[in-house]
Design a protein around this nucleic acid. Structure first.
Lengths: 364, 364
DNA sequence: TAGGGGAACAACCACTGGTTGTGCCCACCC
DNA sequence: GGGTGGGCACAACCAGTGGTTGTTCCCCTA
C-alpha cells in the first residue's frame, strides 16, 4: 500500500469516475486503473464495482475511504511538521516525564487547536543554539548556566519551581519520615545515575552538593528510571532525588516513598526560553498560558543555584492572550484528533542505549 | 513521501544505526541509506546527522518521528479495516445525519475502545444481502419491507421510534403552531425530494399517505438537505417532514420551525438487524448498548406501518454486556485517537451527483 | 598509526509504474 | 433493435525508480 495509490483511491471515490480522477491527478485513466487494481491486490478486497458509467464504491471501499482520508491527512501533517515557516510550535523539554512535559500537556488541553511538536535536546547550549537557528521555538531550561549569560536575543521567563523530593525504598532509614530537612540528608547515599558533566542540570547538582555537603553518586550507566526505581526499592542504603512534578510510571508493590525535602526546599528553576522576534503565531499563546498558570516562583524557604535567573529578570510582561489573528498558520481541522505529538520514551525497544541527543537519564 | 521510506525512517531512528534498521527490514544498508536520503530530499530537511558510530536524529527528525509513527499506525488501521475476520465492527446507517448515526455516535462514546466503520447502503434489500454475505455486521433499518419477511438467518431488534416532525418556514400557515395533528396536515403541500421507489423508506411514506390522505410531493432532484431547507424557508406554501432525531446543520436566520405531529404521531421504526451467528466480538456490546439505551418503542399515540416489526418480535433477549473476552480482535491502542470512522457527506465537493450506493437524499 | 565500523558513492540490473493503442461491455437513443 | 458513445481493462512498450554488489571515505579507538 503506497500513498499515491491511496490518494488515487480517494480521488476516484470522490469523482465517481476513474477518468475524472485521472484528470485531477494529471495522469491517464489507465494509470488510475492500474493504481486502483494494485491497491485492491494489496488489500485483498475489491474497492470499486466497475459500471458502464463509472465506478462505485463497494462496501469494503466505503469502509476503507475514511481511513484513506485519515492517512492522507496524517501524511500531510507529517510533511508540514518539518516545513519551515508554517510548522507546529516546536518546544524542547528536558525529558518526557519532566515538569516541562506536564506543562506542555496542560497547554495542549487548554489550546487543543494549536499544533505542537515536542523534542528533547541535550542541554541548554544545544537548546539555545537551536532557538537562535529557528530549529525550535521555545525550550524549558534552568537558565542560565554558570558564568555564561544568555545571548542578548534570547528571552526567558521563569515558569515553574519544581521542589525536589527524596525517593526511598521501604527499608530506608528515612522511609517513614513525613518530610526531611536538607541537613538530614548529609551522610546518606544519594544515587543519581546519568548525570552528564557540562550540562546545566549537572551544574545544578554540583551547586546543591557544594551548598549543603550532600553525597551524590552519579556512578554507573543509566538504564532508565524503571531500573533506577527497582534498585532504590531494593537497596535500604540508597535513595535518590527526583523532581516533585515528575510523572512516573509508579511501580506497584515496591513500597517506594516520596518524601518532601525542607529547610530549605531545593527547587529546580524551570524557565521558558525563546528567541526575541520569533514570529510563530502560537508562541504568544504559550507564553500567556504559562504566565497565567505558573505558580509564583522564588517562594521563601526554597533554594536555587545563584545562577538561576530570578523570576523577574529580562522577561517582558507576558503577551496578551492569543486572539484569532494569532492562531497557528495551519489551524487544526475540526475533529481532526489530537494536534500534539511528542516522542515518548515508551516506544519500541531499542537494540542498544540511545544515541545522543536522546536522553533517558533521570532529571529533576 | 512513501510509506516504505517512512517505515525505514522509524526503524533507523529506533535502531540508531542504518545497518541495524537494514537488518530488521531485510534489505541492505545501502538501500536504507538511499531511502532515508530520498525522504530527506522529499521533505527538504535533514533527518539524521551521520556520525562514525551510527546516525542520530536531528531536531527536525525528532519532530518528524511521532508523525511518522502516526502515519504507520493509521496505515495499519486502514489496511485492517478491510481485513476479513479481524476488522472493525461495520454498521450500515440510513444516512449520515439520521437517528441511527446518532445512536452509533452514542455507542462510540460509551465504548471508545471498540473500533467502528460506518457505511451507508441503498436500501434494506442491499443491507440484508450485505449482512448475509458478511460484508457488514449490522444495519439500522425499518424492517421488514411489505410482503417480504426477513430471511430466517437475520435477527432484529427494534431500537428507536423516531417521531416525524413538520418543518416549515416562518411564513407557513402552521408556522406558529406548537404542535399539529395529522389531520391538520391534509391539504398542505409536503415536499420530500429524493424518495426512491422500491426502498423501504419509500414504502413508509406510501403507507403514511394511504393511511392519512396526506399530500406528499417527491418531485424534483434532490440537491441535499441544505437546498431543501433553503427552499422550505423561503416558500410559505411548502413544508416537509423530518425525523425528530435528525441532526441538521441548522441554518441560522432562516426562521425554520420544527413542529411536533400528534394524534397520532407517525414514528419511523428503526431496528437493528444482524445475521444470526455473526461471531464479531463487538456485536453483543452493540446490541446490549442499544437494548439499554433505546426508549421503549411502540408507545401509545404513535403510528407505524403495519409491516414494521413489533418491538418484541424475533429478538432474543439482548446479550449480556460485553466482557473482556468479547473485546474486538484488534483492541484500540491506548491513546490512539478516535476509533470510529465514517464517511460523512460533508467531504470534498463532488463533480457530479454521487453514484449509487451513495445517497444524499433526505430520509426520516 | 593501523584497524574497524558505519555511511555514502558508483555501477549495474530488474521491475515498477507510467504512457499509447485497443478491446469490450453496457446504457442510451434514434 | 442495432448503432453509438462513454468508461474501464488489457497489451505492449519504455523510462526511471529502487534494489543489489563492490568500493571509498571518515572518524573513533586500540
Amino acid at each position: 500500500m503506497d500513498l499515491e495509490s491511496v490518494r488515487t483511491f480517494v480521488a476516484a471515490a470522490d469523482a465517481g469516475r476513474f477518468q475524472d480522477a485521472a484528470a485531477e491527478l494529471a495522469v491517464t485513466q489507465q494509470a488510475v486503473s492500474k493504481r486502483i487494481a494494485a491497491l485492491e491486490r494489496d488489500l485483498g478486497v475489491r474497492l470499486f464495482t466497475r459500471t458502464p458509467r463509472g465506478a462505485e464504491l463497494t462496501i469494503d471501499g466505503q469502509a476503507f475511504l475514511p481511513h484513506a482520508r485519515d492517512l492522507l491527512r496524517v501524511a500531510e501533517r507529517a510533511a508540514s511538521s518539518v516545513l519551515a515557516g508554517r510548522r507546529p510550535l516546536r518546544v524542547d523539554v528536558i525529558a518526557s516525564r519532566s515538569a516541562a512535559s506536564a506543562l506542555m500537556r496542560a497547554f495542549h488541553r487548554a489550546h487543543p487547536e494549536i499544533e505542537l511538536d515536542v523534542v528533547m535536546l541535550f542541554d541548554v547550549d544545544t537548546a539555545v543554539a537551536a532557538l537562535r537557528s529557528g530549529a525550535i521555538d521555545a525550550t524549558f531550561r534552568a537558565v542560565a548556566a554558570p558564568g555564561r549569560p544568555l545571548p542578548e536575543d534570547v528571552e526567558s521567563a521563569r515558569v515553574d519551581d519544581e521542589p525536589l523530593e527524596l525517593l526511598t525504598g521501604p527499608a530506608h532509614a528515612l522511609a517513614s519520615a513525613r518530610s526531611v530537612t536538607v541537613a538530614q540528608l548529609t551522610g546518606h547515599r544519594i544515587w543519581i545515575p546519568g548525570i552528564v558533566p557540562g550540562t546545566e542540570w549537572a551544574a545544578y547538582y554540583d551547586d546543591l552538593i557544594a551548598e549543603f555537603g550532600l553525597t551524590i553518586e552519579a556512578t554507573g550507566p543509566n538504564f532508565g528510571s524503571d531500573a533506577l526505581l527497582d534498585t532504590i526499592a531494593d537497596t535500604p542504603a540508597l535513595a535518590t532525588l527526583m523532581g516533585g512534578h515528575t510523572r512516573l510510571v509508579w511501580p506497584a508493590g515496591h513500597g517506594l516513598r516520596r518524601i518532601p525535602v525542607t529547610d530549605p526546599t531545593p527547587v529546580y528553576p524551570h524557565s521558558l526560553l525563546w528567541r526575541r522576534g520569533n514570529p510563530h503565531p502560537a508562541l504568544p499563546a504559550l507564553r500567556a498560558h504559562l504566565a497565567a498558570t505558573a505558580a509564583a516562583p522564588g517562594a521563601p524557604g526554597t533554594w536555587t543555584p545563584p545562577w538561576a535567573i530570578p523570576h523577574t529578570a529580562s522577561s517582558p510582561p507576558p503577551a496578551v492572550p492569543a486572539e484569532p489573528g494569532a492562531r497557528p498558520a495551519l489551524p487544526a481541522e475540526p475533529g481532526a484528533g489530537s494536534a500534539v505529538s511528542a516522542e515518548r520514551g515508551d516506544g519500541r525497544a531499542r537494540r542498544r542505549p540511545p544515541a545522543l541527543p536522546y536522553r533517558t537519564t533521570q532529571v529533576p
